[in-house]
């Protein structure tokens, strides 16, 4: 497969996954903002999802509609849903002959939904959740179509790797941001709403309740998000999938590259598998997550170099 094609499939999948995570976070946070007497802050969200201009954004951190509009529809924000879905579609367009027509139409529709003027109206004047739901539905259609229509080969492996890499980076980021707030404000440790909100953002609230009966506890939350293999947004689950789909790319003609990346993935997976919550906390959770993030980026970089020919 052409390196450029593999790269486009991988990025198309990463972008859609990123939009998925963002939309869910926005929805939960917006709901919370309607459910609080204190002033609600969007600071953590802003810190996770926008790379630059952080200071400027903090000016609007209490204005829910403004934040949603910025993260959803701002053309100047390179990480806005509008921009990343445009990129996802461009990537798909350039590899049209490698993906099922249905999947292309799906992305096309997602794109047109984001561009629909109605969306802005919901965000500015009406119920922003309606706008978010319209988009979330598009992501779900994409996931369903991709799962049922994508041929089971190299193409799909690159898409799966992209998806799970993006997802694990997101989970790590969210955990890091949420726990760093705790270190500056210990009261949060016992704040039920705070933890519930975190779990909802990751879609892990119900699973948590089923798994842990003794209420909210930081250790248990870390365990769920990092180590629970039944939780589809846990770091371990994502790593297992990255490993699984990467193994399928094995080929004799680039065995050296394959081996070194395979080693890197295996090492990170072991690092997670053989961690316990207490060992993570020993060396400070923040350091642990920072290292993990840099390992994940390292995997992305190696893919870029060995499989995508730097393109």
């Amino acid at each position: 497969m052409l390196s450029r094609v593999a790269s486009s499939l991988y990025w198309l999948s990463r972008y859609v996954e990123r939009s998925d995570g963002m939309l869910r976070m926005l929805k939960i946070n917006y709901a919370s903002s309607q459910d609080t007497i204190q002033e609600f802050t969007w600071k953590p969200i802003i810190r996770i999802f926008s790379a630059d201009d952080e200071n400027e954004l903090l000016n609007i951190q209490h204005d829910s509609r403004a934040v949603i509009e910025y993260l959803l529809l701002n053309r100047e924000n390179p990480n806005s849903i509008l921009n990343i879905i445009t990129l996802a579609r461009e990537n798909a367009r350039s590899v049209q002959e490698h993906i099922p027509k249905d999947l292309w139409q799906c992305l096309n529709e997602y794109y047109h939904t984001v561009k629909d003027e109605k969306l802005l109206w919901y965000v500015q004047k009406d119920d922003p959740i309606t706008a978010l739901d319209l988009l979330i539905k598009q992501v779900m259609l994409y996931h369903g179509t991709a799962d049922s229509a994508m041929e089971r080969g190299e193409s799909r492996s690159f898409m799966k790797i992209g998806k799970h890499l993006e997802r694990s980076i997101q989970s790590v980021d969210i955990l890091d941001v949420k726990f760093s707030s705790v270190s500056t404000n210990p009261d949060l440790l016992t704040d039920i709403a705070y933890w519930k909100h975190l779990l909802l953002s990751l879609g892990g609230y119900e699973l948590y309740l089923k798994t842990y009966r003794q209420g909210f506890d930081a250790k248990n939350i870390i365990e769920l998000v990092m180590l629970n293999n039944d939780f589809p947004r846990s770091a371990l689950y994502s790593m297992n999938n990255i490993e699984r789909y990467f193994n399928r790319l094995k080929s004799e003609s680039n065995i050296e590259h394959y081996n070194s990346l395979s080693f890197k993935i295996g090492r990170l997976k072991s690092m997670i598998t053989y961690s316990s919550v207490s060992s993570m906390e020993e060396e400070s959770l923040h350091n642990y997550l920072t290292e993990m993030r840099s390992e994940l980026f390292g995997i992305g970089n190696m893919l870029n170099e060995y499989y995508f020919a730097n393109s």
Binding site: M1, L2, S3, R4, E97, S253, N254, Y307, F308, S311
Partner: peptide, 23 residues
């Protein structure tokens, strides 16, 4: 046949190659 763009191709010692995931 493969649909390529210029950036998918490279010339090495007077031969043309395309960059694939396996080299």
């Amino acid at each position: 046949v493969e649909l390529v763009e210029g950036r998918d191709l490279v010339v090495k010692n007077q031969k043309v190659y395309m960059k694939t995931t396996i080299g």
